[in-house]
Amino acid sequence: MFQSIDFSLLALDAPGWGGALLQGFWRSIQLAAGGYAMGIVIGILGASAKLYGGLVMRDLAQVYTTVIRAVPELVLMLLFYYVGTDLLNRAAQSMGFAGIEVDGLAAGILVIGLVQGGYATEVIRGAIRAVPHGQIEAAQAFGMSPLKVMRRVTLPAMTPHAIPGMANLWMIATKDTALLAVIGFSELTQVTRQAASSTRAYFLFFLSAGALYLMLTLVSNVILRRYEVRARRGLIAAHQAR
């Protein structure tokens, strides 16, 4: 009834699928890292808009975060993917190029980044509000420009408060890359499905892919916890002194 599990299917070279899986895994990591980085940039911009922006900017940022957090990621990804590639193509055509092929990796990063940005905005906004206002005022009193205040005081001071939320977002980013399989990106989940359906060894491949994802989660957990200890090093002393 149970055929013995054929581990040679996981071999790295051509008849085995191990190499293809690892390539898909690497692509998943690239997508997650790129999307996450873009999410942080959008998050900082969005949080600044919500905290320091004018009335209109504040409301626009609110609409953005509300929509992102209320609509399923899968639907958002489809929408961003079609809108993004469509706009790019139209822009290229109007400039005289004959329709460009959008790079899959860039499109995937864009899609994940836009989704991540909505959540990152909220995390970073909360973290900035946790920074004692006197620190920011002191920097302004020195005559620093708003950008310099951001770079030298606000961002470093808010980092320890943002890390737990941002660590959570990184986990979400790694798992969200799997959704790109539905749009047809050849990342880990998609490759796994191809391998599983062509060899009919479903359990072997889905469980190996699960192990890869789990490994990524656990390893990044350890790294992020270390980073949090480092980022909180000043705060812990202040906490103990109290």
């Binding site: 986990m171 799997a178 599983a196």
Partner: peptide, 12 residues
């Protein structure tokens, strides 16, 4: 369960 994507679990 929390460390792997839901889509992968669903397909498994």
């Amino acid at each position: 369960i929390r460390g792997t994507p839901l889509l992968l679990q669903l397909w498994l």
